[in-house]
Design a protein around this nucleic acid. Structure first.
Lengths: 260, 260
DNA sequence: GAGTGGTCTAGACCACGTT
DNA sequence: ACGTGGTCTAGACCACTCA
């Protein structure tokens, strides 16, 4: 049946969406804003998963009891924020966050339009261990909680481009050491194997020099210029689920930033 | 008279705004999009200057012969792009671009909430000269055109934080060598003295090491990690009017990037 | 053909800032 | 009091996708 692919979203809607009167029984907050908050909650809470279709505009209008213009204003801002994508004639969907894709603004070389990259990772380490104090401050979890520490070298077309160490809360990925982590993106494994999805991340970038270990792994000279990139990735509930530190070759990558 | 402050915008409107029928005599381009393009043109062409008030929504509706909803959709996207800012009860204004402000995402130190920074620049060089070939490729101007080359050290609270060399097309700032360039932002001088405004810029960032010269100027050790930041700043007509190369101390700054 | 999102209209009332 | 932008409605027609 064709209905089966569309109805689920509707059922989710009925059961978990708040009614507007309950959201803020006519305070000063604009309608469209309250709706936006409620829709955001559906996504952040995990009730609506990435890729899933959300109810149509008309359905949502009926549910909230607002006009289409108001509803579209709410949706528009979510689209703007990248949480939702719309397709004329098809429907609206929760966006698939692609954190990996936007790590670095542009490649200096290795840029072949249209040609799919040959990208993979060599796993140096993957072990479950108690959480280092430094990491605990960032992940902000219980004292006795454990993490997986994963160290990988990323290769693009045979060339090592970055050396990354990730700390991932063990509750998000029990048994990670038994999984194949040589794919391009750790996030793919976490989503496929555990349903763990990261919605957003903060990245902090600074320049650094290659020490002996990093230089050897990345096959560059000691003291070569590198990007040191630290990343905090947030799960549904906005907690930090992964802390990552990466050394990225400065001779191969550069950031592009557009200012207005 | 109070009218004098508001009318000019209207007069500009009448004289330079295109009529919709002339923009694209009903092709497939949505109305709001054509309006957006036309408004953008007013700003890019310099007819509407930064800070200036633009005609009210009702006036623009009358001019274009569209409903308020449609017009607001056009304006909304310009606000989103940062070209226009709106203020309830006051009006809508062409944004003041502040390229300097967003150079680096965040400070590692020197961050004192609310306290105004003590920021100034020491001018090492400011001379008019023929354009180097490398720069001509970027500025894309006539072969015999000249540039000003300005080299400055930026200080924040007495500490040197970056060493910058700017190449600015001489047509944009004749007599620049006689001006005081010790203020925080070159862009302020160019706007105040010549009415030259940069609307947007691209920045390319890579990690680098301090050579002897840079190390001495920035009072750091040779081979300290630096950001090397190249910037192309675009004027009204979207031509590149300034090419800048800056070395920024990596121990004081880092970029913050938000990913979704 | 039925359902989706995309565009557009013509009204209304409100919140805010200026005069 | 007046003019600005902010919110909201109830309709209409269109472009696109999919069955």
């Amino acid at each position: 049946m064709s209905g089966q692919r569309r109805r689920p979203a509707t059922r989710v809607l009925r059961s978990t969406l708040a009614s507007l009167s309950r959201l803020d029984p006519d305070g000063l907050v604009p309608l469209y804003h309250r709706i936006k908050e409620d829709l955001t909650l559906q996504i952040r809470s995990g009730a609506w998963r990435p890729g899933q279709e959300i109810p149509s505009e008309v359905e949502l209008c009926r549910h909230y009891g607002v006009s289409r213009g108001t509803l579209r204003q709410a949706i528009a801002e979510l689209v703007q924020q990248g949480l939702i994508s719309r397709h004329q004639g098809r429907g609206s969907f929760v966006s698939q966050p692609k954190l990996e894709g936007s790590v670095l603004g542009s490649y200096r070389q290795y840029r072949k339009e249209g040609a799919p990259f040959d990208v993979y990772a060599q796993v140096l380490r993957c072990e479950r261990r108690p959480m280092p104090g430094e990491v605990r401050r960032i992940l902000g979890t219980a004292e006795d909680e454990e993490v997986y520490e994963v160290e990988r070298i990323r290769f693009v077309q045979g060339t090592p481009v970055s050396l990354q160490t990730s700390f991932i809360a063990a509750r998000l990925c029990p048994g990670l050491e038994t999984r194949d982590l040589s794919g391009a993106h750790l996030y793919d494994v976490l989503q496929r194997e555990y349903g763990t999805v990261f919605l957003r991340a903060e990245e902090f970038v600074e320049p650094a020099l290659a020490d002996e270990y990093v230089a050897e792994q990345l096959q560059i000279a000691v003291s070569s210029p590198l990007f040191l990139v630290e990343r905090h990735s947030h799960t549904f509930d906005d907690r930090v689920g992964e802390f990552r530190r990466a050394h990225v070759r400065g001779d191969l990558y550069r950031y592009r930033i557009d200012l207005r």
